[in-house]
Simulated scan of single mutants.
Amino acid sequence: MHYLILCILANVGIFLCFRQFKAYGLNTFQAIVFNYITCVGTGIIFLGDSTLLMEINYNKPWVIIGIVLGLIFISTFYLMALTTQRFSMTVSSIASKMSLIIPVIISLLILKVQSKEYTVFNYFGMFMAIPAIVMSSFKKRGVEGSDFTRLAILLPIAVFLLGGLIDSSINYTSYHYLSETVEPIFPIVIFSSAAFIGIISMMVSGQRITLGNFIGGAILGAINYFSIYFLIRTLSYFNNDGAVVYPMLNVGIILLSAFVSILIFKEKLSRLNQTGLLLAILSIVLLSFEELLALLF
């Protein structure tokens, strides 16, 4: 259970970093690239036995999945940063963590895998996801000092969709391909891929590297690595039952992010935003209340 708590804290730490990047005037994308470079270094250091890296074989499915996830990770991370900076930590956390709906829908409609008999409450929870994101994100006045536009709402929705793809991929890979030996190596593959893509993008765009971006990215990278590592360890602890893990994890992240936003950064939520926040929490609880009750009792 302590891995779950650490995972919640690490995820909120990521949103805090995004929030501070704007405050310190850092280049968000450049910091994110350095973040992934740091993730690779952190992963290798805490791996202990470097010979385990020999397990990386490009013929293995989990390695290929990790490489593809690198592209999705850096794209999603950048969109999460923009959402945090243009809206708030609360909106970004809701958009990214409501994504647990996506793996459920994919299992039902595409993979035709149903691990339980879904009730009307479960389906109601699924359908509440998008309204919750829209309501929590809506602003009557400017986003970044300008009038709120319809295009702005696409940021949290994109984070929601890509976050769901990431959750589905990690859960699927953890269940089918990851042994305890390669669990710490899988994040290294993902982060190496994301770092490589980011470095190429920086070289093509000719960005000038600054010390501030490097330091900001390094701090974010250490937190980011452990957010994924603790997630994998949490899934392993709960026998890879994502239906139990993701509701507890995501509700915890949403609540703590909202608390930090309001208490520390004095971010104000309108009644519509507050309703969206409550709707997001209710949606997650309705989707998985059977598993949560079973865990408690």
Rank of each mutant, 00 (worst) to 15 (best):
K140Q: 12
K140V: 11
R141Y: 14
R141G: 15
R141I: 14
G142S: 12
G142N: 13
E144H: 06
G145W: 09
G145H: 03
D147N: 12
F148D: 15
F148S: 14
R150W: 07
L151T: 05
L151Y: 10
A152W: 10
I153P: 02
L155G: 10
P156N: 02
I157F: 05
A158I: 03
V159K: 02
G164W: 00
L165I: 02
I170K: 00
I170V: 04
T173G: 03
S174W: 01
S174C: 00
H176R: 15
H176W: 10
Y177I: 13
Y177P: 15
Y177L: 13
L178V: 05
L178F: 04
E180Y: 13
E180L: 14
V182G: 14
E183S: 08
E183D: 10
F186D: 07
I188H: 09
I190Y: 00
F191N: 09
F191P: 11
F191V: 09
S192W: 06
S192M: 14
S193R: 02
S193I: 03
S193G: 10
S193D: 03
A195M: 10
A195C: 08
A195P: 10
F196H: 01
I197Y: 13
I197W: 08
I199S: 03
I199A: 02
I200R: 11
V204H: 02
S205P: 04
G206L: 00
G206S: 01
Q207D: 12
I209N: 05
I209S: 04
T210P: 11
L211D: 10
G212E: 11
G212S: 09
G212K: 15
F214V: 13
F214C: 09
G216W: 12
A218D: 04
L220Y: 07
G221D: 10
A222V: 15
I223C: 06
I223P: 08
N224F: 14
Y225E: 07
Y225P: 04
F226M: 10
F226H: 09
F226C: 13
F226E: 08
F226R: 08
S227H: 11
I228H: 10
Y229H: 05
Y229R: 03
F230K: 06
F230A: 05
L231D: 00
I232T: 05
R233Q: 14
T234N: 04
T234K: 03
L235V: 05
L235C: 07
L235Y: 06
S236H: 12
S236W: 12
Y237C: 03
D241W: 13
D241K: 14
V244A: 14
V244T: 15
V244R: 09
V245E: 01
V245M: 02
V245Y: 01
Y246T: 04
P247M: 09
M248K: 05
M248C: 06
M248N: 08
M248Y: 09
L249P: 14
L249M: 14
L249C: 10
N250G: 01
G252K: 15
I253H: 06
I254T: 08
I254S: 13
I254R: 13
L256E: 08
L256P: 05
S257F: 04
S257P: 05
A258T: 08
A258F: 04
